[in-house]
Design a binder for these strands. Structure first.
Lengths: 158, 158
DNA sequence: TTTACTGCAAATATTTTGCAATATC
DNA sequence: GATATTGCAAAATATTTGCAGTAAA
């Protein structure tokens, strides 16, 4: 695993390049947001990102947060997910082992699920008249905890 | 392919059974919504479903629409999707060939993508401490039309 | 100096909720 | 007859937009 600061340097450079190509301005807000995102280990949503920024005493407006997130999605430094429940989830995309997602229909928890066989089969598919760039696989079901809880409840009522 | 009316009968029966088990009431609104959904060929959203109901002169409130949709999701007669753009999409689940989705990042269009090899690999995965019930695979990229349009634009500027 | 970007607040869109009236069981 | 469900309207939530001021190029 690469050093965290090194990763931040690389993504900052990638973002700089992207902003240059797109003739967008390199504002401190944008880089502060990118930095914060690459300090968060797992998933996050807009609200938790906003709170994290506030705690670091770098307040940005909601508008700027959404604006910057769109740029980061465009240049594939961030991935966006919508697991069925209300709001969007995000995660960093660079140097983050690609994974699928297991979503519990009972408690709503989300687990990462790595499976290279699946990954390579999906990525190697040749699709007619469509050029894929990325994909999301969401598997819905019942997580271990909820499954155990249900079993316990069932035994109690016996 | 089964006859459309026969399918409607079967899903109506399935919904009846579900409502009975869950001790929920069998209201005309619920069955009218189910019927309408099974009259729509492809994807739909709440707005188009609502309009379709109005055209059939069976108006139901937004609240009832969302309430009923939740029941239909629970008993797996309907599937829900969120492709990144604003609102949720739905599609009927029974007697609807399972498929994956190709989403164009440019124009936002959604195509169905059938691949049985992929389907069976995903469905046959044994996952530790997780009991899967259904899954969604979304492949994002550029559709044929947009790809052709881009190529044309590129040639024009040459 | 130009104008893209920011913060703020208001607008929009989507889904949920509270409540009185109604209809199922 | 009891109460789950409905319609309606208001509330909650998430995201987008308009605009005046600020700062990047």
């Amino acid at each position: 695993m690469m050093d965290k600061d090194k990763i931040k340097d690389i993504v900052r450079q990638k973002f700089t390049d992207y902003l240059t190509v797109k003739k967008c301005r390199k504002t401190p807000e944008r880089f502060a947001i990118l930095d914060m995102i690459y300090s968060i280990p797992g998933h996050f949503d807009m609200d938790s990102l906003n709170n994290a920024m506030n705690n670091e005493h770098f307040r940005v407006s909601k508008g700027t947060l959404y604006n910057t997130m769109q740029l980061l999605l465009d240049c594939k430094l961030v991935l966006k997910h919508q697991f069925g429940n209300s709001h969007s989830h995000y995660e960093r995309a660079f140097n983050n082992d690609f994974h699928h997602h297991l979503i519990c229909s009972q408690c709503g928890c989300v687990q990462e699920y790595k499976d290279n066989e699946l990954k390579s089969m999906i990525q190697n598919k040749k699709i007619k008249r469509f050029t894929p760039s990325l994909y999301s696989l969401y598997i819905f079901g019942i997580c271990g905890k909820c499954s155990a809880a249900m079993k316990r409840r069932k035994n109690n009522t016996k």
